[in-house]
Design a binder for these strands. Structure first.
Length: 523
RNA sequence: GGCCCUAUCGUCUAACGGUUAGGACAUCAGAUUUUCAAUCUGGUAAUCAGGGUUCGAUUCCCUGUAGGGUCACCA
């Protein structure tokens, strides 16, 4: 009841959402979806989207993970609206520098300890929290026992009624203590989740949970509550796995006299096994997808449709269109399996639509990484194996031939290696088209070689080649009799772009050389 | 085990309580192509089970079943 009243209150004012990751590893695809939905909802409602790094666990949090996450945000063009600092800032953590060039750095919990301390002290003073001197092993054993009895594994409250003097005495003896929240007994917590609907919990299932290791080291459930209140977050949109945390947080909010935000718990992203997507399912880190060559706009489009849809048949969305059509009500209640086939399709779609120059520029790092080429001045590259020059323009031609075949940018490597190799390595059997007799095959290749001879080096392009090769191919029982061996001789591959296209890029000399080699191979 | 959540084609999903249960990906077939890709055309494929409520349930209610999440001095 109480909660519902407050829910209405927090509806007032501008929408403020947040994404609050812990920098304890590579940023997960599920986290990015949470971030995206928070972002979309804020933008849709002309609200603010806030980024808060939850690094209270000093053991596991690493600045490099934070840095990596920021890079991903930049790549996806997801920007946050507020932060503790503005202008360019460099943070130095253990000699690890993070350079923020945006208008704001993110909030960082490790820099807000004084704030938590204040609230923690308040709870202690008001007798809503208490010091607990029980050791870990003792509490753990207790939990195991309760669980084996089919009881909720809660803290039994041994230190709950310790007097001030006893507490002081224990401290004087040098005993260490954690801070527990005095959880009201048999208290019903009801709240309306925007996605799940009405959700109900009983306080007895959580017991007096720990909210801080000590005054200096608050724990997650506590910092979340304090920060969300301090930052005036009124919509908490997060993964389903946080649903059991909601009642704990609501209890803390009530104890602190703060207002309860609206909650929206999103379904999880699942792996093939229908369990929460994990490393076992393959790649879960957004960085991996970036490196594989998934385009940011494709990834966003795909991720947005995992558990959400606009209710129409439109499936290709730009970020602005997503902002426009987004609503929390359209979020699914059940988990969605991460289907890489669909991602591949969407990504391929965006790749096919990409302007050629732009696509080529994005592919050059992949060519370099594969050691196909290296830079040699403006728009000029050197093919590493042959030491020949190759222009940006020629690279563009290669890219054009394979653009529609790419599912992801990294696919370009195995598709186009033939243009960057000195010697092709392939099974001679591949040259054979539908059981052609050996002599016929050799004749076919010789024919191609001979036809090419009729074109000068300068006129050696696709349309001229077509003019002479196609009529010749028509004379064969099947066009493939001429075209298949030619294409294989040129590419060494079962599948590829057309032979005339390839020959144009390769040039007369190299094309003929490759045909000669093929003939030698089968003779 | 306790608590909580969920259930439509293989997958993502649509359907004021009334539809031949729609779309997309994947898949299959055809067209096109020397091959593959792309493209176009067409096809296969789903309401977890059982009870109610109702003139009528994919839709509302209950039970069961199945799946998942969570039970830290992690977040």
């Amino acid at each position: 009841m109480n909660a519902e009243k407050k829910l209405k209150q927090s509806n007032l004012g501008t929408v403020r959402t947040r994404f609050a990751p812990s920098p304890t590893g590579p940023i997960h695809i599920g986290s990015i979806r949470t971030a995206l939905f928070n972002y979309l909802f804020a933008k849709k409602n002309n609200g603010k989207f806030i980024l808060r790094v939850e690094d209270t666990d000093m053991e596991r949090s690493k600045p490099e993970w934070e840095h990596q996450m920021i890079k991903i945000f930049e790549w996806l063009k997801l920007d946050w609206d507020e932060g503790p600092l503005s202008g360019q800032q460099i943070f130095d953590f253990d000699n690890y520098k993070i350079n923020y060039v945006g208008p704001h750095a993110p909030y960082r919990q490790s820099e807000r300890k004084e704030i938590y301390k204040k609230y923690l002290q308040k709870l202690l003073d008001e007798d809503k929290a208490y010091y607990c001197f029980c050791n870990k092993e003792e509490v753990e054993a207790q939990k195991q026992y309760l669980m084996s009895m089919g009881q909720p594994p809660v803290y039994m409250g041994k230190c709950r009624e310790l007097s001030k003097d006893q507490v002081a005495e224990f401290f004087a003896l040098g005993k260490s203590a954690v801070i527990r929240f005095k959880c009201p007994e048999n208290h019903k917590i009801v709240f309306e989740d925007i996605i799940k609907g009405k959700v109900e919990f009983n306080s007895d299932v959580m017991g007096d949970f720990v909210i801080a290791k000590d005054l200096e080291n608050p724990l997650y459930n506590f910092t979340v509550v304090v920060d969300d209140a301090e930052m005036e977050i009124n919509y908490v949109i997060r993964g389903d796995e946080h649903l059991p945390n909601a009642p704990k947080q609501i209890l803390l909010i009530e104890a602190l006299g703060l207002s309860i935000p609206n909650y929206a718990h999103m379904p999880l992203i699942l792996g093939e096994n229908k369990k929460k997507l994990s490393k076992r399912d393959g790649k879960t880190s957004v960085v991996d997808y970036k490196e594989d060559g998934y385009l940011p706009e494709a990834l966003i489009n795909f991720i947005a449709f995992l558990g959400w849809n606009p209710g129409t048949e439109k499936e290709i969305y730009t970020i602005d269109e997503l902002i426009n059509d987004f609503s929390l009500e359209k979020i699914q209640k059940s988990g969605a399996i991460f289907n890489i086939d669909k991602l591949d399709w969407i990504n391929g779609f965006y790749i096919r639509k990409k302007p050629l120059n732009e696509l080529t520029e994005q592919l050059i790092p992949y060519f370099k990484k594969a050691e196909f080429i290296e830079e040699n001045g403006a728009e000029i590259y050197i093919i590493k194996e042959t030491q020949e020059e190759i222009s940006f323009n020629t690279l563009t031609k290669i890219v054009l031939l394979y653009q529609e075949r790419l599912k992801k940018l990294s696919d370009i490597i195995e598709l186009t290696d033939l243009f960057f190799k000195k010697e092709l390595d392939y099974d001679p059997e591949l040259l054979n088209w539908k059981q052609m007799p050996k002599q016929e095959l050799i004749n076919s290749l010789k024919k191609s070689h001979e036809i090419m001879e009729s074109i000068s080096e300068i006129d050696f392009n696709k349309s001229n080649l077509e003019k002479v090769i196609l009529p010749e191919a028509e004379k064969m029982p099947n066009r493939g009799n001429l075209l298949w061996p030619l294409r294989v001789a040129l590419t060494g591959k079962k599948n590829s772009a057309g032979p005339m296209d390839i020959a144009e890029v390769l040039g007369k000399k190299e094309s003929q050389k490759r045909i000669e080699k093929a003939i030698k191979l089968i003779s």
